[in-house]
Design a protein around this nucleic acid. Structure first.
Lengths: 344, 344
DNA sequence: ATGAAAGCGCTAACAT
DNA sequence: ATGTTAGCGCTTTCAT
């Protein structure tokens, strides 16, 4: 029963499989990669050997030899944001029928972290890079360009891509929401969101929003920005404070659904009728808040599709048999009116 | 200004840096890794060369040569579960002052996916594996044992580890909650949770819970299990259905905070007083629901610390200068009574 | 303080 | 259908 347990430490190599199965390393390699013609008999032998030995190939060596690494670097600001796990799901989904595998790096919204993570990732020579946002540091841009690796910037398309980009126009999203709100008859509008410098996409939505209001002669009546803490609680607090400050408000636009949900809960507790006395809208369309007493008006940020398309671009660049794809893909988010933005 | 742009494709190698800086590849390598003695002057020259060239080292080659890969494989069932991103945060936190880097693999709760992901990960010969749960398939266990790599199983300690484990006892967690509920005077208890086979830890909590109730002669009065969908909405629906079915209930125990939050919202809308008429408790202590009208009673699952400790174990195994650590670390979750479980 | 040689475990390219 | 030969770009070890 017992094998020779004398030294269990050295990892197995192709050579070991070769010896056990009695064929050359090269043939073993062929079997393992389903390459070239191998007779069913040898194939069998080799597979048996790998199984009984418990051989796991060494991709490090394989990658060095073949100059090919089937990894896609995915660089995102955070995992706790709801949004990014869904992007990941889209990426995994699209990569599932390719040999490519995603590897995640998290930057915590810090440009310096981004540079470090990117450097680490690039040092593995991945087959592609998917990175959130259009605004990277000069250093990061230089690294990406220099690498010669396919790069897809995601989430945002308001700007110039390094290579390819797929996302939505946050400016347009902000504009569309502003127009819908005005059209519904609301006039006294407050805004709540994340502290801007941290979040370019929220900033762009805000810019689009105020711009579209301005075009119709409306100005934001009140605004407030937060950082950190539980978004639900923050939404609650900010909404309370803003109601206090600006009682004439008849609409609250939130830069994300979670703070919007907090606001909604607060208003309902106060007995303020939504969307009658007060309209509300958020952004992202997160499933998480689906069980609230009312469905918050929002706008889909298309994150699953974004991940999917980005991954498909990388895949197409790495497989000449695939259709080449456009380098700029704009997705069009639609307004979900829910129950907190009355329809005109 | 322009360099020779004739061929921008070939990635730079140590050799390129060596030529530009006028020192041997070996010395360049030393500088880049801060190894051995290098004069300040050469150091300077080399660093300049790497900077101007934009050289990024090739870790594939480095890893093959040094037989060392500074990656830690982290294998978790899902990213959209709230819980796991926090584990990741703990891991990153602990790894930040080491040369190690986490790489995430997601299994979607599927044993076959787990095997595949594990195989892929192991083929990169990481310095450690952190994997969620104690129950892996035979194949997965064999791979882990065979690999000779340090393995830390996390989240759960009710069982035998392959190598090391850090987590909480979910059985004990279930028991403690049952005892607290009974002590508070509730007697007619309903349970809602995820479909069991998918989630061993929820199952263990349930077992501990019913066992502790049984000890005091109490049986679960009603129970319901769900899969998929928005947890908040599910909690709402299940709670409504259960109230209908079993109007005598005076306590609802939820296997996670999100469905508990849904239940809470539903009950409040129905005008049922919590925790007077009905007590509630969840599990996990997720910050996400902090802004609800009442704080749900819950139990901290210690996920940040779990990630941290697991990462520290891996780090200590890879660095002989670090203190060796215990292979079994049990964390003790505390009950947070919140506003939905009255204190006796 | 610096350099030269060997080889990590695979695969590409060429035999046979 | 199978085997042989050279590396891939680094780091280890040993010289100098």
């Amino acid at each position: 029963m017992d094998q020779d347990m004398s030294q269990q430490k050295r990892p197995l190599t192709l050579r070991d499989v070769s010896e056990v199965s009695g064929v050359s390393e090269m043939t073993v390699s062929r079997v393992l990669r389903n390459r070239g013609d191998v007779s069913a008999a040898t194939r069998e032998k080799v597979l048996n050997a790998t199984k009984t030995l418990g051989y796991v190939p060494n991709k490090i060596a394989g990658a060095l030899a073949s100059q090919r690494v089937n990894l896609v670097a995915v660089i995102i600001p955070s995992l706790s944001n709801m949004v990014f796990p869904e992007v990941m799901t889209g990426i995994s989904d699209a990569l599932d029928d390719t040999p490519l595998q995603p590897v995640v790096g998290v930057t915590n919204y810090l440009p310096e972290r981004e540079e470090k993570v990117l450097y680490e990732m690039l040092s593995w020579r991945p087959s592609g890079v998917i990175i959130a946002g259009l605004e990277q540091s000069e250093t990061s841009r230089a690294m990406l360009i220099n690498s010669g690796i396919p790069v897809v910037q995601i989430m945002d398309i308001d700007g110039e891509p390094i290579d390819a980009m797929v996302g939505i126009s946050h400016r347009r999203a902000g504009r569309k929401m502003a127009e819908a709100i005005l059209k519904s008859g609301y006039q006294n509008i407050g805004f709540m969101g994340t502290q801007m410098p941290l979040d370019h996409r929220a900033r762009k939505r805000f810019e689009g929003f105020t711009q579209a209001l301005g075009k119709q002669g409306v100005e934001i009546m009140d605004q407030e920005f937060y950082t950190g803490g539980s978004a639900l609680a923050k939404g609650r607090e900010m909404t309370a404070a803003m109601m206090e400050r600006s009682p004439e408000l008849d609409f609250m636009y939130y830069s994300n659904d979670m703070i919007g949900a907090g606001g909604l809960l607060h208003l309902r507790e106060q007995g303020i009728s939504v969307p009658g006395q007060m309209g509300l809208a958020g952004f992202n369309k997160v499933e998480l808040i689906d069980g609230l007493p009312q469905r918050l008006a929002t706008m889909d940020s298309c994150r699953f599709e974004i991940g999917q398309m980005a991954a498909k671009i990388i895949a197409s660049r790495n497989d000449p048999t695939l259709e080449p794809m456009s380098n700029v893909i704009e997705l069009s988010p639609k307004i979900a009116y829910g129950d907190t933005l009355r329809r005109k």
